[in-house]
Write a protein that binds this DNA or RNA. Sequence first.
DNA 1: ACCTGAACACCGTTCAAGT
DNA 2: ACCTGAACACCGTTCAAGT
Lengths: 184, 184
Amino acid sequence: MPTPERTSLDVIVAAAVRLLEEGGPSAVTMQAVAVTVGVKAPSLYKRVRDREALLSLVGADGADDLTARLEAASGLDDLLRAFRDFGHERPEAFRLLFTTAVDADRLAATSAPVLRATTSAVGEEHALDAARLLTAWATGFVTMELAGAFRLGGDLDEAYAYGRAHLIASLTRGQVEERPAQGS
Amino acid sequence: MPTPERTSLDVIVAAAVRLLEEGGPSAVTMQAVAVTVGVKAPSLYKRVRDREALLSLVGADGADDLTARLEAASGLDDLLRAFRDFGHERPEAFRLLFTTAVDADRLAATSAPVLRATTSAVGEEHALDAARLLTAWATGFVTMELAGAFRLGGDLDEAYAYGRAHLIASLTRGQVEERPAQGS
DNA sequence: ACCTGAACACCGTTCAAGT
DNA sequence: ACCTGAACACCGTTCAAGT
């Protein structure tokens, strides 16, 4: 007679998500996840290939959350605020997104709302360049902020607002006239 | 009679640096470091508090390397190229800088050449804002690039060149007129 | 068909004992 | 004064054995 299922993949991932945000990646042990969902560690391997795969699913969960927040935003300024808010509310998930290998499609979905916003702001031709400029800046700002790398004082909320205003203005008004011929 | 010293802190850190760049953080085990320097693992604790402290020293080494490269650059464009070059040549060190707690002073030293370049480009008053805008963008760009987060095609060398040109132009010409009143 | 106990290899770290 | 063997607690993972 088959043993009844005592847990599920969703429950396991949810537990891992919570452990991550509470104690960082090192707190996401197979043991801790197992205890949280009420099962022994070896049982987890029925639903998940290994710890790395589990962390990848946690990253995908974070990517989905971020995508939903960006989808709900309207306009570039709102979008950039939502991006940083996500980093503040789920700092460990944010870090994981740019650290661990997270599923390609789930992360790609994140860029859809950004591209939509930049397209309506600067037109189709420059939408990708603009999206990359903005997401790179926002990613770097939040990454450095979470790492405590801004040590020269000043209000970070203001600094982020300055960056938003400067970048959006520079994109919508003066685009750079011609693309440079060669890269580095 | 005292046992002769069979290693030193510098040798240990250098071994850890090499292990990191060859196999990522998980390759930097106390065992592997000990074997590399020709000693048993417990001996490492005579020079280093624990593994985290060792990784922090590795991060400091990376910060020093980055600082030296930025000091050698002349002008904003050159500076931004050097920053990305560092990320390409030492990707694991780059990631460590914005992940692990690295010594405050060593990381702060990195911003000195950036501030010098922005000061001469946009003046003292906007130097800090400009430095943060540029380093945040460059950090985010390289972070995303290393994470494989740019999946929409296109030449990344060109995209980086576009960003450099756009940002430098927007800073030196049209500064944003007034600082926004409130942040987010 | 799912779960578990036992086991394995491998961590980081401590410490008494060596020289 | 530095080094080491032995030991401890804790990982991730496998697998035969239970139901």
